[in-house]
Amino acid sequence: MQEFKSPSSRLARLFHKGRDNWKQRALEKQKKLRALEIKVRDLSASRDYWKNRAKIAEEKLQKANIETVQEKKRD
């Protein structure tokens, strides 16, 4: 403690306050990170769901087009 000119009690209080602030910021960052991970998970699931629906709709459309072409050839 020779390198510090302030009283030890003041230094202890400042160091504790600094540590508490650091812990609080770290907790907030962890909460934000967790929230973003959940958001990414949910958006990925939603994207997969809609991608699957689009593929199914596209396949139905292609089938309908093929059937239409075949009916026109019959006529």
Rank of each mutant, 00 (worst) to 15 (best):
Q70I: 06
R10L: 15
K23E: 11
H16F: 07
R10W: 07
A26S: 07
K32I: 06
V69R: 12
K55R: 15
M1N: 11
L36Q: 10
K73W: 04
R53E: 15
K31A: 08
I38W: 01
K63T: 05
N65E: 09
R47M: 09
I38T: 02
K39F: 00
R25L: 03
N65P: 04
L14Y: 05
Y49W: 10
D42L: 00
K60A: 02
E58M: 04
K5R: 10
F4I: 13
E28N: 01
N52S: 15
K55L: 14
Q2A: 14
S44K: 00
S8P: 03
S44T: 02
P7A: 08
Q24R: 14
D20A: 11
I56R: 01
A12F: 12
R74L: 14
A45Y: 07
K63C: 09
S6Q: 11
D20W: 08
F15H: 08
N65L: 13
R47G: 04
H16Y: 09
Q30R: 11
N52P: 01
Q30W: 04
N65Y: 02
A35K: 04
T68Y: 11
Q70D: 14
Q2W: 08
K73T: 08
N21L: 13
I56N: 01
E71L: 09
R47D: 07
E37V: 00
E59Y: 05
L33G: 01
A35H: 02
S9F: 10
Y49C: 12
L14S: 03
K51E: 15
E59H: 07
L11M: 07
L27A: 13
L36C: 03
Q62P: 04
R10C: 05
K72D: 12
G18P: 01
K73I: 14
N21K: 12
A45E: 15
